[in-house]
Design a protein around this nucleic acid. Structure first.
Lengths: 205, 205
DNA sequence: TACGTTTTCAAACGCAGGTTTGAAAACGGA
DNA sequence: TCCGTTTTCAAACCTGCGTTTGAAAACGTA
């Protein structure tokens, strides 16, 4: 693989990630992507075999980026008291709230998919979400040692839901009638609030 | 207003609601709508002044349908003990889980919008979401009488998030790796579980 | 029934989308 | 340097989109 062609490929991927995250698959045109990447239009078909092939690559990267952040800390969590482990988990889930970074773009692409999953996504999900769900289930199990598997699963989703509603709706929440805007310190504050309610809810405080 | 033209209008609205819910605004074509409604293509421009105007009407209906269910019971809630009021609220929020009905279509349209709100939606939201948010804030205030306005708002959203993650992701949750399917009794069970955790979280049990 | 208005219709328009093409340019080993 | 391969490029192609048009049909009223 020669050097310059890799650069073109990468520019396309970067531009596509931004645009797919911002507008979704349908509303993002090939022409918009190549304009942003400053690359010839035919390059997408050459390197990715069309728009759908490009999207597949972007989705893979987003999925990896999102879960590996939590998975990377799964080891730490085992060594922490359950209260601290949960607080850290919540704080990490809320991270895309403040930062306009790669992680928040990945979350955004993910959000588009949860509305109407493409086949590409379903496959990725059933193959690679298990470790992440497993990690979350193990976390809540430390608070509900006697619960059955089904309840644990619900508890894990419950925990994720409390965080995701803020992340997913960040933009709406910034406007009326809610008017909640988040900088780093506001995210810390929110994380403490949510952790507190969750800990009490699970009977740990 | 004559009779048959109202029928045409209604057929268009019904078909559009289904398709917008299923595929979102961008991926739904005028041609698909008129094919489903068995109506001439120009009828959409005639009755709704274009695709966007039609979407506005669909969005309005969806919004009304979603909130009026809760608003209609706002009166009852005031007469109930706070624990029962909250449990009833949660149960109502979870309603679209079991039914494949109008309510679940409305939720779906709503979901599309939360990913990337259209101007139409933003306007509707800032104008009409206030009563619904107010109702939810009043509910949590009964558990957190000393909290400031910002915390109450967060608590209200927190409560909504716990429910919405199950409703929004119903289809994904049904498959691997989670495998949670919901019939009426499962929804009751889930509502009790969530209510319990929430009540404890807010310090009421 | 007669007539102005409302509503439907088939056809076409202009545009933006994804993809294809064929040649030019850049590359890299011999 | 030479030559086969890889990569880029501008232009065109075709399809499907939302909208417009102008006339025909249906309607409601007097």
């Amino acid at each position: 693989m020669t050097r310059p062609s890799e650069i073109t490929r990468d520019r396309i991927l970067k531009a596509a990630e931004r645009l797919f995250a911002e507008r979704g698959y349908d509303a993002t045109s090939i022409r918009a992507i190549v304009a942003r990447a400053r690359v010839n239009q035919a390059a997408i078909n050459y390197h990715f075999d069309g728009k759908e092939g490009l999207y597949r690559e972007v989705l893979r990267a987003a999925f990896r980026g999102l879960t590996e952040d939590q998975l990377a800390h799964a080891g730490d969590a085992a060594g922490l008291p359950r209260e601290q482990a949960l607080a850290a988990f919540v704080r990490r889930q809320l991270r895309p709230l403040a930062a306009r970074d790669e992680a928040s773009r990945h979350m955004r692409i993910f959000n588009w998919e949860t509305v109407r999953p493409t086949p590409v996504f379903r496959k990725l999900m059933s193959e690679e979400a298990a470790p992440f769900m497993g990690l979350t289930v193990e976390l809540v199990r430390r608070f509900l040692p006697d619960a059955d598997q089904r309840s644990l699963m619900v508890a894990a989703i419950w925990l994720l839901g409390q965080c995701s509603i803020f992340v997913r709706n960040r933009e709406q929440l910034a406007g009326p009638p809610v008017a909640l805007a988040f900088d780093d310190s506001a995210v810390d504050w929110l994380a403490r609030l949510l952790s507190g309610w969750t800990l009490r809810g699970l009977g740990a405080a």
